[in-house]
């Protein structure tokens, strides 16, 4: 963060402020340090045009399979998505070119990591949320919510699993009391409902 703010002083006021990723790439020094990374170093950003192209393809697929009546007037339901798909493909192409030409190296840490992102932490969060989403009706809000809380705390770096578990249960129970009992939200009671 700190370097983002010091740079912002001297250059574009419009620079995206959020975190190290927003820093302009400085190819000269980072490329030397990352020379061992191979083609994908600094080019993981290709995932963005990939998403965009996939989305445009989905739009095209949807347009082809769309049941449109013969008598629909000119700007029918396909017209606007078609514009989006064209622009989407175009932007994906431009992004690919930009990233191939100028790889983006995020700011280097003092310690070298293989990946810029801490995928283990992300996996804890995503895994926890998946269990929560799938299990909420069976397990009930209190258990599923506590599990989610515990997984996230764990992923973000808490080192006290037993304490976390009790805290998580207290937290999700309080929400249940406040929102389901108090405000009348429809939260499933699940397993505990049968007791």
């Amino acid at each position: 963060m700190s370097s983002a703010s010091t740079q912002g002083a001297s250059e574009a006021p419009w620079a995206e402020p959020s975190g190290p990723t927003a820093d302009p790439p400085r190819p000269t020094d980072t490329e030397q340090r990352r020379s061992g990374g191979g083609f994908w170093a600094g080019r993981s950003g290709l995932v963005v045009p990939a998403v965009l192209a996939a989305l445009s393809t989905y739009l095209v697929y949807g347009m082809v399979t769309m049941p449109v009546g013969e008598d629909t007037d000119f700007p029918g339901p396909r017209f606007y998505p078609m514009l989006l798909a064209i622009v989407g493909y175009l932007l994906a192409l431009l992004l690919v070119l930009e990233i191939l030409r100028k790889p983006e190296h995020p700011e280097q840490d003092e310690v070298e990591y293989r990946f810029y992102s801490d995928w283990k932490a992300v996996a804890w969060l995503v895994g926890g949320f998946l269990i929560f989403a799938v299990g909420i009706e069976f397990l009930g809000w209190i258990v599923a919510g506590a599990l989610l809380f515990w997984c996230v705390a764990r992923g973000v770096g808490s080192k006290r699993p037993i304490f976390d578990l009790s805290l998580a249960l207290v937290f999700s129970s309080l929400i249940y009391l406040g929102f389901a009992v108090g405000l009348g939200l429809n939260l499933p009671s699940g397993l505990l409902g049968g007791l």
């Binding site: 929560f132 989403a133 909420i136 515990w150 996230v152 705390a153 770096g157 808490s158 998580a168 939200l185």
Partner: peptide, 19 residues
């Protein structure tokens, strides 16, 4: 503590959308 802050936010995300 950061872990509890973000854990709480995540649970609220789930709560809001499910509710």
């Amino acid at each position: 503590p950061k872990p509890y802050l973000y854990a709480g936010i995540t649970v609220f995300c789930g709560l809001g959308v499910y509710a």
